[in-house]
């Protein structure tokens, strides 16, 4: 794995940092690579934009911050707006379909998922971040599925493992159904504007 830069954004309370933490942990602790996760520290209150960055690599990571993300995971409109221009020209956007009005540049790819609705369907909107994580894992293919699932198990509060794994699997399945082999999706953005409404 060459150096891959990721930014995860959302609003405070959505579990942005946990989502990034699990990606980093899965890659470093379980998959045996390197990952550096940095969460934004600021006066962000619950409800306002919040963000975390990750650098993943199979080599030692020297530069801890990211410059332009290869993958941008956006769970809220405000977080998306704040950082959308950073995405690399050939970068990938992974976004909450119901919340983020995605606008892409030519060459960028996008993958949307109604992760909040899916989480609500599982009975807890709180696991939206893990639905998104499952979807991200499937989209990116950076880290083997089992390693990420293990990181979910090891990172979520005791007693919630089953629900969170269900959420992860739901996110993963959504990718397979909508973007997997044979599925029609917006994987390659032909146009510069992708409708935020499914």
């Amino acid at each position: 794995m060459s150096r891959t830069e990721i930014r995860v954004t959302g609003y405070g309370g959505q579990g942005v940092v946990l989502c990034a933490y699990i990606i980093g942990r899965a890659n470093a602790v379980n998959a045996g690579n390197h990952s550096t996760m940095i969460q934004s520290f600021g006066p962000e209150a619950r409800g306002s934009a919040c963000s975390a960055t990750l650098a993943l690599s199979d080599e030692e990571i020297l530069y801890p911050y990211i410059r332009r993300p290869d993958i941008f995971v956006a769970m809220s409109a405000e977080g998306y707006d704040k950082h959308r221009d950073e995405l690399k020209p050939k970068g990938t956007l992974v976004y909450e379909k119901d919340l983020v009005p995605a606008r892409l540049k030519k060459g960028q790819r996008s993958f949307g998922i109604p992760s909040t609705r899916i989480a609500e369907g599982l009975g807890r909107s709180l696991v939206q971040n893990i639905v998104m994580l499952g979807f991200f894992a499937a989209v990116s293919g950076l880290i083997p599925r089992d390693e990420v699932r293990k990181a979910v198990e090891d990172s979520v509060p005791t007693g919630t493992e089953e629900l969170n794994l269900k959420a992860f699997d739901a996110g993963w399945s959504y990718f397979e159904e909508h973007y997997g082999a044979g599925a029609e999706g917006d994987a390659v953005a032909a146009a510069t504007v992708v409708s935020p409404v499914a």
């Binding site: 980093g24 470093a28 390197h34 940095i38």
Partner: peptide, 9 residues
């Protein structure tokens, strides 16, 4: 601060 708030293995 950078090392303090950086998460790694």
């Amino acid at each position: 601060e950078c090392v303090g708030h950086m998460t790694e293995k």
